[in-house]
Design a protein around this nucleic acid. Structure first.
Lengths: 195, 195
DNA sequence: CTTATTTTTGACCAATTAGTATAGAATAAA
DNA sequence: TTTATTCTATACTAATTGGTCAAAAATAAG
């Protein structure tokens, strides 16, 4: 195929754009903001990604591939699925980089912002959270099968419970300090010790 | 005091503006949107409320006065504070008007939107959620004093637990149907039966 | 080397944004 | 009735928005 080589790294550009959308939200992230972060010019962006909306969707997909992989990895790193769940939520309460608290969860942010503005984008964000639910659900089913969790657990409901807690914690982390967040995690995951 | 009478009802205007800010968020609510909803002209709005930001703050305060009163009322209507808490959360899972699901919680929406955009507005929203926490806290302390709840409950942590559940449920209501939401409420309020 | 194709650059554009200014209408007090 | 004051209506503005376009640069294929 002939033609000029693309000078920028598409993945690096998506990563930078993701950061802007994550912090500012969809509407408040201006094309100027995005282009500055991506370090490319307007023409290149519109040529490579279409428009702001399609750029966002690509950014969201790129982000999601990594995010879901990280969630799944927790269940590989931790043999006991209860430890995996604890690791995931303690990671929210006490992240390596404390600035993560202000950012919250990209999915939660977009679902919250777009529900009243763009039903299609809201649905995309909703679907991503349902993907997280599905990972939890599968892992709970597997753990029950393995005998690592009691036979009488309601895996389907517990998965939704965990997603709901995820949603709450990613708002609450903008209100409470890390010690308080840890108490919330302890309390909400108490069922794991009882189970 | 001399001068022309104000033609519009300030409280009605605030109510209409609240609806717009609640559905669209702060940034995406344009002055045009607001003026149309408030049914007044630009000059009147800027004269009476200053600018978009100060209008928002007045709207938020107006909304909060009613909202906090409603929360408190639940503890008057329901003698048993556990019934009050159940009424509040079942009201989220199953509101009189189902369109409430898309709107979510005004406080949660604004805290989520503004954390990365305007620290002062985010702090105002955070403070309102802390006001809700305070109501829960006081009522739990009172219930414990009354012997209506066990002496060993951690009222302070439980209040935060309820706010965190509030935050989560007001995101999750954009993902799940009312039956699923009811299951989430049942599960998250199980401690009330045990307590 | 020429040609076709792709990417980059930056000027440009129409629409929308929040906010201002000014004139006029309504009112109470003097 | 005059005057000072407040409110309303709307034309206007400067800045920003997402998006387009045309020309130039870079490249592979013929």
């Amino acid at each position: 195929m002939s033609g000029r080589y693309r000078e920028f790294d598409e993945e690096a550009a998506l990563a930078q754009a993701a950061e802007v959308f994550w912090i500012k939200g969809y509407e408040s992230a201006s094309t100027e903001d995005l282009l500055t972060a991506m370090q490319i010019n307007k023409g290149s962006m519109y040529h490579a990604f279409g428009n702001k909306r399609t750029l966002f969707i690509k950014v969201f997909e790129w982000f999601s591939a990594r995010f879901i992989r990280n969630i799944k990895d927790a269940f590989v790193t931790n043999v006991d699925p209860r430890d995996a769940i604890r690791a995931i939520f303690y990671g929210v309460a006490n992240p390596p980089d404390p600035s993560a608290h202000a950012k919250g969860c990209f999915y939660v942010n977009i679902l919250g912002e777009m529900t009243g503005l763009d039903a299609d984008l809201a649905e995309i964000a909703r679907q991503k959270l349902l993907d997280v639910e599905e990972v939890f659900h599968r892992e709970l089913l597997k753990a029950r099968r393995n005998g690592m969790m009691p036979a009488d657990i309601n895996a389907s409901l517990l998965a939704k419970y965990l997603v709901n807690f995820w949603n709450g914690l990613n708002i609450s982390r903008r209100m409470y300090n890390e010690k308080e967040l840890k108490h919330l995690v302890d309390m909400n995951l108490r069922f794991l010790d009882e189970a």
